[in-house]
């Protein structure tokens, strides 16, 4: 089975300023990959390079094994994309926009599109130009899901949705990426494994649906792997001295932040191993407590590094 998305040593520069500095990323079939990164970290640029909307300055991008810049119609037919700002024909009615889009996809599932519109309360007879930002985003999602794409790329798709629409969207995303029969034909009947690349700032959403995470930092992938693995790797460690104040320059392997106040020290480590607490306790004569971090805390810690 071909890899849905792949970037090899991808570099993208605008007027000489490199936004992406050699990104290597592979999105395997059936994966829901959450792309995390600060504002301006290059998430949208990476997505655009991966889809052939921007031409890489160096390196390569592939969609289903094809060069992203010159994708075939067949590859495009297996791909769905929701940009940050959905643009459509303002004078057309929602129903007409859907029919127009469907005409380009051989696998278009009108029943699914109708079902999604109903679930998201999209007014079919309304002109697209007067839809609210959230409704427009929802329409963008319907257009991207209607042909039951094998690969769905979403660039901050839920930022404009209200909490209930966001919840519904995540539920649908879980359904379409669910294991085999879980989808139950409700959100498309395709048996093909769905792959999703999903960029967002809302880490709680990622925790709900992303099987893997990629953290974009300084133009490169700082972490790529399962979200549980990231949580296993990044921990907060609290040290309490058994005999007097701790030295300010205490050496904690893999620490990105360390604060020392008297007998207490706290550090966030990015390369946590199960033997680290015992080692630290023995080397520094301290009691060690390990605190689990959620994704948001990890995101903040890693970016404040």
């Amino acid at each position: 089975m071909t890899t849905p998305l792949e970037a090899r040593s991808l570099i993208k520069a605008f007027d000489g300023d490199a936004v992406l500095k050699g990104v290597d990323l592979t999105v395997e079939p059936g994966t829901v990959l959450g792309l995390l990164g600060k504002n301006g970290s290059g998430k949208s640029t990476l997505i655009k390079c991966l889809l052939g909307l921007l031409k890489p300055t160096a390196g390569e991008a592939f969609v289903f094994g094809e060069d992203a810049w010159s994708l075939s119609a067949a590859a495009k037919g297996r791909l769905g994309y929701v940009p940050q700002e959905v643009v459509t024909y303002p004078w057309m009615r929602v129903r007409q926009v859907i029919a127009y889009t469907g005409a380009f996809y051989p696998t278009w599932n009108q029943r699914l599109a109708d079902d999604l519109c109903r679930r998201w309360n999209l007014p079919l007879e309304q002109r697209a130009g007067v839809l609210s930002v959230g409704q427009l985003q929802t329409l963008g999602l319907v257009l991207a899901l209607g042909h039951e794409p094998e690969l769905l790329v979403l660039d901050e798709p839920v930022a404009s949705l209200d909490p209930s629409a966001r919840r519904e969207f995540l539920r649908i995303l879980i359904e379409i990426t669910g294991d085999g029969d879980d989808a139950g034909g409700r959100v498309g009947e395709s048996a093909r494994p769905r792959t999703v690349l999903f960029s967002t700032h809302i880490t709680s959403d990622l925790e709900r649906i992303a099987s893997r995470l990629a953290l974009l930092k300084d133009g490169a992938i700082a972490f790529e792997g399962e979200s549980d693995a990231l949580k296993e790797r990044v921990k907060r460690i609290r040290l309490t001295s058994r005999n007097g104040a701790l030295p300010t320059g205490i050496d904690i392997p893999g620490a990105i932040h360390t604060t020392v106040e008297g007998v207490l020290a706290e550090a966030t480590v990015t390369d946590f191993t199960p033997d680290l607490p015992a080692r630290l306790a023995a080397e520094n004569n301290v009691d060690v407590a390990v605190v689990d971090l959620n994704l948001e805390e990890i995101f903040v810690e890693m970016h404040d590094e």
Binding site: A74, Y89, W91, Q96, A103, F104, P106
Partner: peptide, 23 residues
Amino acid sequence: SPSVTPLPRRLAAAWSTYTTRPM
């Protein structure tokens, strides 16, 4: 399934962007 929809259908879709526009 075929990788593209029939050309007349796509032409009709492209044409609909004109027929629906009052301008």
